[in-house]
């Protein structure tokens, strides 16, 4: 058992460096996660007193959104609805070549190797991705009933982990899926509906300001999203934005 793999890994010292691919051989076990396979590689590199490959990761449970990587051209690798940390080596073949690259978009500058700066996504949330309620102001949690289905749909949008795979998958480098998921998550709930107009206007404006591309309904984001956020979210955002523009005060 075990897999002998050839890795082509993007190495880039820092943002000013041009960057290049480096080849590595690594032995992996089928039950390893993809990141554990990289741990093995790094352990060997450190042993040889070389710089390990920098990549972001944290929870390794598919929820924190820190892990990224474009594996053989796909953000988070070959499995649908799976983050890189939840991808296991049993999905690769012995002798396979695996090309590992960072998430690419002009709004995600490379920090080092496979680590990119995704802070633009935070700034989109800061522009309006919240309900303006101070601590202590809230009425009883059951004071407004919310239809079960509506809450479920809201949850589906709220499941976004902010990893940025949608931006990386999009040939336009658009953050429409990320932004719209937040807008729909809050907009479907009565608590969030109140300020939807300003929210959508500000968030869309921020998305533009950051330099994200414009959605042209390709659907690569939806196809690669590890949390299966759908294009319905983007349509929702469009409706909300059109409504806010033409009916708002």
């Amino acid at each position: 058992m075990g897999l002998n793999l050839k890795l082509k890994v993007w190495r880039q010292k820092n943002n000013k460096d041009e960057g290049h691919f480096e080849d590595y051989q690594v032995k992996a076990d089928e039950d390893m996660s993809f990141l554990e396979m990289l741990d093995v590689l790094n352990e060997e590199l450190v042993h040889e007193k070389k710089e390990p490959v920098a990549f972001e990761h944290d929870c390794r449970e598919g929820i924190c959104g820190a892990c990224s990587l474009v594996i053989n051209g796909r953000p988070h690798g070959p499995n649908a609805a799976t983050t890189t940390c939840q991808l296991h080596m049993r999905h690769f073949k012995d002798g396979q070549t695996i090309v590992i690259e960072p998430f690419r978009a002009s709004t995600f500058p490379v920090i080092k190797d496979l680590v990119v700066d995704r802070s633009a996504l935070d700034r989109i949330i800061q522009a309006g991705g919240f309900v303006s309620v101070n601590t202590g102001q809230a009425p009883d949690g059951n004071s407004i009933p919310i239809e079960k289905n509506r809450a479920e749909h809201s949850f589906e949008s709220a499941a976004c982990i902010g990893c940025g795979a949608c931006v990386a998958a999009c040939p336009n480098g658009s953050a429409a899926l990320f932004t719209s998921a937040k807008i729909r998550h809050l907009g479907l709930l009565p608590q969030g509906k109140v300020e939807e107009g300003t929210r959508v206007a500000n968030m869309v404006a921020q998305m533009n300001k950051e330099g994200f591309g414009m959605c042209s309904n390709i659907g690569a984001c939806e196809a690669e999203c590890p949390k299966e956020i759908t294009l319905q979210n983007i349509a929702y955002m469009k409706r909300a934005y059109i409504k806010a523009t033409f009916s708002g005060e």
Binding site: E101, A105, S106, S174, G211
Partner: peptide, 9 residues
């Protein structure tokens, strides 16, 4: 322009 550099694969 927004996409910038593309992936090799």
């Amino acid at each position: 322009k927004a996409k910038g550099k593309r992936n090799a694969v």
